[in-house]
Amino acid sequence: MDDFTCPRCRTSKFQNPSLKMMVNVCGHGLCESCVDLLFLKGSGACPECKIPLRRNNFRVQLFEDASVEKEVDIRKRVLRDFNKKEEDFSSLEEYNDYLEEVETIIYNLTNNIDIVNTNKKIEQYKRDNREQILKNKGKLGKVEYELEELLEIEKQIEEARKKEIQLEEALIDELMFSNADAQNILDTFAQQAQQAKEEKAKQPPPKVTQFSTGIQFSRQNHASFLPVPTDEGPSYSYKPVTFPTDGPRPPSDEELIERDFIKHVRSESEQERAGGFKSTIACKRALQDGSHGALPFQENTGSTLRIIYYV
């Protein structure tokens, strides 16, 4: 590791212990000060392979072998598009074929084999599977999901342990500093511990993700949407709304004008017309109010039972 040298300035880790090697997409290393020097303008060519590079794509080299860095970079980029999960395939064999293809592509790109055709292949794949790629982007794979669950369980265990330790510490503190009877303190703490245990027992059992037969269910629920419910039964048909009027039918809009009802109302002012309030509306409302409910309660139960007292 110590025989790291910058290919440009020949500085090595031995000469300068704080030397930081940087790497870009082409996989060739360069020390930090050379990067500063060469890429003053933000972009430039790699001193080894002359590929145009950008300064902000440089990052600290993690692996000794710079080509590994290159592969990591390429893998990241390729997997962004090749993001199918095992669940997307009907058989394991298909999934394996797919994985192999992905690996081939990555290998080709890293080792500069048939780059033109490989890039074409990627483009083709992107075009063919655009929807699937978009859909899978936000999704967690089966493996990620399992990991998440494990983390969750770990967290819970950790919390429980913390609580226990806290209780113990409190007991010791109490015994040290309090001047109450030691037996009393012990008793109260024993009680508390008992209570805590009971509470724990009351807590719902950890999430079940498997039936006793071993079929997993929770995962599938999270990974896909619920099926769209299909409507069964007769389709909706529109029925015009009818209002009870309890009286004679008032004239319609056309009749208002044809039969000169409108002549007996004040005509609307210009401002009122601008707001959409025409005199027909006022006229119709008055006529409606005049007739609605005039014939007593046709549909109500009270209609026949009505008794007039003052006759």
């Binding site: 000169d260 009802f261 002549k263 007996h264 006229c283 409302r285 008055a286 006529l287 005049g290 007739s291």
Partner: peptide
């Protein structure tokens, strides 16, 4: 619902018909 507007309606109707 007050009886005032119905009165107007009836008057309009009487004037018309």
């Amino acid at each position: 619902h007050n009886p005032f507007r119905p009165v107007e309606g009836l008057l309009i109707d009487i004037k018309t018909r």
